[in-house]
Design a protein around this nucleic acid. Structure first.
Length: 571
RNA sequence: CGGGGUGUAGCGCAGCCUGGUAGCGCACCUGCCUUGGGAGCAGGGGGUCGGAGGUUCGAAUCCUCUCGCCCCGACCA
């Protein structure tokens, strides 16, 4: 494309509402424009990168034996009622009505629709295994859209669904997708890691997330420094510390802790480490049950682990009023001694002796309390958030912390949806059995954004060749100079003939602006055409990533470029 | 939803406290000039000051309500 004919609205200044680099650069580079919160238009340049990622995904899905189809974005409520998710999914599901007042939703994911398709078309185990995917716009009415394409409400996703007769087949399908994902993100030029993950409201038995490592990532992940254990902190386990501390020596005694409400304040007041305190969290489940959860003072609750333990969808901290009603004291002084509600505790609490807890009385705490002796814990479980330095659950190593962007997620679904929707086949014995499913997502736009998070410098994006919107940009220093225009145009046409995706910057701008734009939009290779070098019979070539400039004889340039582009596509 | 902030030209902002001609930089248009790192000069276009109501002779500015957007927490590709 010639830039004089292309829509490339670059911005010199950074828009105020863009927080992270990828969002800023996509806005500045003329790749996207916001239409509403979490809703974007992909401008021509941005769309090209999106399409590149889609194409890589397609190739690898097809290679893994999956078939592409396309499902509707608008889905009748009735299907979601069958699976039970119409009630369950909550406000993220955007519900709409048609003119006849029939209810629909905008699809945030498509387990129901695909299962409906398959139950209507697949009757026999001989038609299995089956893996169907689509690349499509999804809508989730996120509580807080942010970071541009990173967390939009409308976003492009590849979602695939596998169907098998038995668990073993489903495991194979899962493994195939896992391998395909490795290939996809590698081809996109990303540094990533697959980690064990919680399954959230998609459900199912096990899952892995593909995390692009980036400081700006919204997820925290841990990995072992010795073995290959890696997990989202939501799910992360740590080496258990099961030894029982036994009853301590101290007598339990009540002490004054005026105005000291937080763990930090009490610890400082008593001049002891936070780990000697027991933190008492008062919570309420979605079914309205109130309970207390005990943690070592320096630990944080992992709500997802708690929800799994309780088999509920969410827990919520009690309001100050509810705390006062339950404990008889203002919030900040809750403790397990004499507490009437159900009490759970993290495993670590079992190892504590002579601990400090709230006394359920204003401005008072207990010293020298011991679980079992002074209060009764209904059950101990792993309820705490992993932190850097915790022991690896699989080996003797210790855990490190990273930030990651979740670009892909694979789930083993089991028969959750096939059972709810009655998707069955006849097996070899002629018996009707529910299909065993898996589902596999990739955030397309998010992958582009993640690539930018990982590949940029002060001057802009540095696209990896496979997902660059164009592979080469030819910068004409002075397009009014006939020789410059002629030499540049010839190279441009030759490159196109060779299948290289090339931009010709033929705009009548000063060189500085053109260099800045070329760097901002991250085209991997730039060819500079100016009369100074042309007099020597040369172009100047420069790779965006490396930066060093190279004078190259005009007649060698075409072959060199074609070669470089092909080589970088292969890497 | 809770807490904090912000809406003035396409973008970045000032003006608001203390009411009285709507401004600056970038971008855009025209001309001249310039052409190896976001030039210069001259001229020009572009605004329901987020919206509604109120106070006032007079509101971007004060008051009330409302909407959008951003940031901090629970959601997820």
């Amino acid at each position: 494309m010639r830039l004089t004919e292309y829509l490339l609205p670059t911005l010199k200044e950074t828009p105020a509402d863009a927080e992270i680099v990828s969002h800023q650069l996509m806005l500045r580079g003329g790749m996207i424009r916001k239409v509403a919160a979490g809703i974007y238009t992909y401008l021509p340049l941005g769309l090209r990168s999106v399409r590149k990622v889609e194409q890589i995904v397609r190739e690898e899905m097809d290679r893994a034996g999956a078939m592409e189809l396309l499902m509707p974005m608008v889905i009748p409520a009735s299907l979601w009622e069958e699976s039970g998710r119409w009630e369950q999914y909550g406000k993220e599901l955007l519900r709409i009505k048609d003119r006849k007042e029939t209810e629909f939703c905008l699809g945030p994911t498509h387990e129901e629709v695909i299962t409906d398709v398959v139950r209507g078309t697949v009757r026999s185990y001989r038609q299995l295994p089956l893996n169907l995917y689509q690349i499509q716009g999804k809508f989730r009415d996120e509580i807080r859209p942010r970071f541009g394409l990173m967390r939009g409400r409308e976003f492009i996703m590849k979602d695939a669904y596998s169907f098998d007769l038995e668990n073993s087949g489903a495991d194979t399908a899962y493994e195939k997708m896992y391998q395909a994902y490795q290939r996809i993100f590698k081809r996109c030029g990303l540094k990533f890691r697959a980690v064990e993950a919680d399954t959230g409201n998609i459900g199912g038995s096990s899952s892995h997330e593909f995390m692009v490592l980036a400081e700006s990532g919204e997820d925290a992940i841990v990995s072992c420094d010795c073995c290959d254990y890696a997990a989202n902190v939501e799910k992360a386990q740590m080496r258990s510390v099961m030894q029982d501390a036994g009853a301590g020596q101290a007598e339990m005694q009540k002490i004054d802790t005026p105005q000291r409400k937080t763990i930090a304040e009490v610890a400082e007041f008593l001049d002891m480490p936070e780990s000697r305190l027991i933190k008492t969290l008062l919570l309420q489940t979605d079914s309205g049950e109130q309970l207390a959860v005990l943690l070592r003072g320096d630990r944080e609750l992992n709500e997802i682990k708690l929800c799994r333990y309780l088999d509920c969808l969410e827990v919520e901290m009690l309001s100050d009023e509810a705390v006062e009603a339950l404990t008889g004291a203002p919030s900040g002084f809750a403790g397990p001694v004499g507490l009437s509600c159900r009490i759970l505790a993290d495993d670590e609490v079992r190892t504590m002796a002579d601990a400090v807890t709230g006394a359920n009385e204003k401005d008072m705490h207990y010293m020298g309390t011991n679980p079992g002796r002074d209060f009764t814990v209904e059950a101990y479980a792993d309820l705490r958030q992993a932190v850097a330095g915790d022991g690896c659950p699989r080996c003797e190593g210790s855990l490190q912390m990273w930030r990651g962007i979740e670009v892909g997620h694979v789930f083993k679904l089991g028969t959750k949806y096939s059972q709810a929707l009655g998707a069955t086949v006849l097996n070899a014995e002629g018996k009707e059995v529910p299909l065993v499913m898996g589902c596999y997502g990739i955030g397309i736009g998010r992958t582009v954004a993640a690539a930018i998070e990982q590949n940029h410098d002060d001057n802009g994006v540095i696209f990896p060749m496979p997902i660059a919107p164009f592979q080469v940009i030819i910068t004409l220093l002075n397009p009014k100079d006939e020789q410059v225009m002629a030499a540049g145009t010839e190279l441009y046409e030759q490159l196109q003939a060779q299948g290289v995706e090339v931009l010709l910057d033929d705009r009548d701008e000063r060189p500085g602006s053109k260099f800045k734009d070329a760097e901002l939009i991250g085209i991997p290779i730039r060819v500079t055409v100016g009369n100074r070098a042309l007099k020597e019979g040369a172009f100047e070539v420069q790779k965006r990533a490396a930066g060093e400039r190279l004078m190259m004889p005009v007649e060698q340039t075409l072959a060199w470029l074609v070669d470089e582009v092909r080589r970088e596509l292969m890497e």
